[in-house]
């Protein structure tokens, strides 16, 4: 290990670069999992689009510390969220609350699915007459395809 280089790099760090910092000590496993889950849903303001649980930025770590502090103080999930919403608005939530026009986010995919389903059903022929053989023999379009089917359907 080169101590000279370490001192040099460390000196550089204090002058030009933001020092990295560690977070507060983790809580017990169960509450820490809650901290992590809540952190996953909160957007880090200093790091583009990442959650505070994912981002390596010191700012994200500070915010995750805050979540940990609030969880340790026995606050509910909603209270933790509202702490951040109070500061950054609903922008802080990576999963928008289903209210107002946000509902479109959830309803439109569902509507698309239903519409698609309906279109598919209209493509189908009416139910075959009972008694008719339920397997239609594959119509050979040409020799090549017939050959392929021969190979495949055996």
């Amino acid at each position: 290990m080169n101590l000279g280089l370490i001192l040099l790099a460390a000196g550089l760090v204090t002058g030009q670069y933001a020092p990295q910092r560690q977070g507060t000590d983790p809580l017990d496993a169960e509450r820490e999992a809650r901290v992590h889950r809540l952190g996953k849903g909160l957007r880090c303001p200093m790091c583009q689009g990442q959650s505070i649980a994912d981002s390596p930025a010191p700012a994200a770590r500070a915010q995750l510390d805050k979540v940990r502090e609030l969880v340790a103080a026995g606050r509910s999930d909603a209270e933790v969220e509202s702490y951040f919403v109070d500061r950054y608005g609903e922008w802080a939530l990576l999963k928008p609350k289903p209210q107002g026009s946000n509902l479109l986010l959830w309803l439109l995919p569902g509507m698309l699915l239903l519409a698609g389903l309906w279109i598919i059903l209209t493509q189908v022929k009416r139910a075959p007459t009972p008694g008719a053989p339920s397997v239609s023999p594959p119509k050979a379009d040409d020799d090549y395809l017939a050959q392929v089917r021969n190979d495949v359907d055996r």
């Binding site: 849903g41 922008w91 990576l94």
Partner: peptide
């Protein structure tokens, strides 16, 4: 609507 919101991984 002039409203800022985020849609991220959880969604």
């Amino acid at each position: 609507q002039n409203r800022r919101l985020s849609v991220g991984e959880p969604y």
